[in-house]
Design a protein around this nucleic acid. Structure first.
Lengths: 228, 228
DNA sequence: TATAATTTTTACAATTTATTAAGAAAAATC
DNA sequence: GATTTTTCTTAATAAATTGTAAAAATTATA
């Protein structure tokens, strides 16, 4: 596998260079940014596999950058914080960073953590690409293709289709779809799923009223089938 | 079905009380412990159906408690951990907790996870696919095939056939069929089963008036036989 | 802040399934 | 063979589930 891309964001050039040195030595492809704006631009453009993000940045707060990125992708983030007390505040905020490292840190330790976070990814996320019949989904690119065409899905639709398509044929109850696609903390109703299913069908079924791919199992839930 | 027993172990009274409130509201019977010793004693004595276990405990470490319990039973355990990084260490240790929840958590989310873990238990116990003679049933796909053809069953018919076919030859009374297929809270009449059996026979018997597979045991109930 | 996009809720229609009831048929009992 | 009990079958009704459109709420973006 070609070296994975890591984006380092910190306003201190020395820190950036030091970390870059270590990560490059470990075979990573390293991108750097010195402020939040640049970080967001690079993150969107180059789609790094991991981001090391400092809390204190000259323009946008690191917190804010983290929050924005979290809404756009699942890219793992390691937060650099000044004091260990900050860490608790951060975890409290439920930002969903994958790890926290307290400054000052040894670059070696950070490199080890980068490796650790990247190593556990595939286990947690499943394959990053699947194909079932005419459907193919790429989870790193966040793209779904059907019958040769790129589908324009919202993020909820994408997640929902992902859950269904990862196990073709398996019936998923609305409850399990909510847990897996919307999260355990979702507080809404079952029927929300119906509407998303309806919208999905409109986007990928030739005849949405007589679906060939996203099937209803009356009284149980929904399932995705290859279209046989 | 009577509420299942859940044991909550945490040294923080507020956390325990909050979780207890939510689980009680969901119909669970809740036991509580504030240290490892007490947790072990209660687990052995009361045999809860699930344990919510904090990692940090005043006397014995939560890790140790988990390890000990794992040697004594298969009771599902949900671990509460301080930071997501701890989770990896734990999974790495192969402790075999059934789920991990990072603090701070929403009590609602934890309640949902408790329910999810308990729900998937029975499915894990019974096989998800069975074959008896010409009949095969796949419970995750919710499909029943007979003589090479996919049967178009309603969800009650599917459940009914599942109960019968999981133990071929065993006679099931209408009462037990109702309990297992329609649920303990069903308030209707025995005769409902007769109609479902009739409909099932029409779907899988060559000659529904002279059934070869779904047999009537006069005065007792019904049974499924391989067709010998 | 205003605007657009997305997500969720609501409400009602359409559909499917479950249940009941009641007479006919079959089996057991006397 | 008549009687009683149990099961089978049909058909009408009730109940539950799903589909759909549109409004409301939320969230992202300019």
């Amino acid at each position: 596998m070609a070296g994975k891309k890591v984006l380092i964001v910190d306003d201190d050039i020395k820190t950036v260079e030091l970390v870059k040195l270590y990560l490059t030595r470990d075979g990573y492809q390293v991108l750097t940014a010195y402020d939040g704006i640049e970080a967001l631009r690079l993150a969107r453009e180059s789609r790094p596999d991991l981001i090391v993000l400092d809390l204190m940045l000259p323009d946008i707060d690191g917190l804010e950058v983290c929050r924005i990125l979290r809404h756009e992708s699942d890219v793992p983030i390691i937060m650099l914080t000044a004091r260990s007390t900050d860490q608790d505040k951060l975890t409290g905020l439920g930002l969903g960073a994958d790890d926290y490292v307290t400054k000052p840190f040894s670059p070696k330790e950070l490199a080890a953590r980068v490796q650790a976070v990247l190593r556990r990814l595939p286990r947690e996320r499943g394959p990053e690409e699947i194909k079932i019949g005419e459907l193919s989904m790429n989870f790193t690119k966040h793209e779904a293709w059907f019958a040769g065409k790129l589908l324009d899905l919202t993020s909820v639709e994408f997640k929902l289709l992902g859950v269904l398509a990862r196990e073709p044929g398996r019936v998923c109850s609305r409850t399990s779809l909510i847990e897996e696609a919307l999260g355990y903390d979702f507080e809404g109703f079952d029927r929300t799923i119906d509407v998303h299913i309806l919208n999905l069908r409109r986007k990928l079924e030739l005849d949405p009223s007589h679906p060939r791919y996203i099937k209803t199992v009356y009284g149980v839930g929904y399932k995705f089938v290859g279209g046989e």
